[in-house]
Amino acid sequence: MSLRDLTVPELLDEARSGDRRAIGRLLTLVERGGEAADQVAKLTHPDAGKAHVVGITGAPGAGKSTLTGRLAAGLAATGHRVAVVAIDPSSPLNGGAILGDRIRMDEPIHATEGADPNNVFIRSMATRGQSGGLAVAVPGAVRLFDALGFDPVIVETVGVGQIEVDITAASDTTVVVVTPGWGDAVQANKAGLLEVADIFVVNKAERPGASDARRDLELMLDLGGHPAWRPPILMTTAVDNVGIDEVSTAISTHLGHLRESGEIDTRRGVRARSEVATRLHAFLLTRVDETMATTEGEQVLADVDDGTVAPVEAAHRLSNYI
């Protein structure tokens, strides 16, 4: 049987029965976007909404991949089926990407006793240009994993750039990883990561400056008044598996808080609305391109070229066709 010949519903059946190749294939369709991706989104929607979606972000080199791998390994060892979406930037010059994060995720999973690698599914994703495709593809992938019974679903991004921050912030629980050393907290602040954090992790905590980093974060949280959930600050040395259980516990404690306070519904409501908006934007962009390519569009654009019609006037005229 060649997977390439299967329809989306057939692929979903295979995926539900545990065929990991089919899951991989469906993710490709989701990532590509278009009709097949929309079909996956519709078919998985009814089964989704159960998984705890966890975002992990932080500066490059903060140790996010190692931390994610350790978390996934620990969860798999306690019987969870864990999915990870690891996002890395594409080159703006040529669209290519080198996706290397999973090396440090796969390793602890293989090394942890009782962690069945078949209970972990890691997918690397490149940002693929700036068209906002990722903003649709990531929720699509998360929904697919959710519908297939993976829980939690972890989304790992580098905390630079608005797209990445937005994607992480669209999680139920957002973990921001910083490292000791001046500047990291400042960098995180600049990137807007501090406002979105539900949990802070100071990784590489064995290094000098770790307690300073912790104190800086505490001070900053003090400035924020007394919210219902004050983000805990946890110290880890992910590479030596130190402090990982505490992070895992904090993540589930946060989920408990979201449920008790009812905030989970608020967050998911915002997320759903934001996905609608994103999809509408994408839809509009496509319609814009299509309209400009119609006969009427070509005509108006030719007039703009001649200088007989002002661009603003052209846009007004064509907006009627959208």
Binding site: R21, L93, N94, G96, A97, I103, D106, S124, A126
Partner: peptide, 29 residues
Amino acid sequence: LLRDAGFEVIYLGLRQTTDAVVAVAEQED
């Protein structure tokens, strides 16, 4: 070279087993 030619490279580097490589190829389609 492949990245610069527009490929997406899932880089596993050193000390892999054949089973690990296949498992990754499967997850990454």
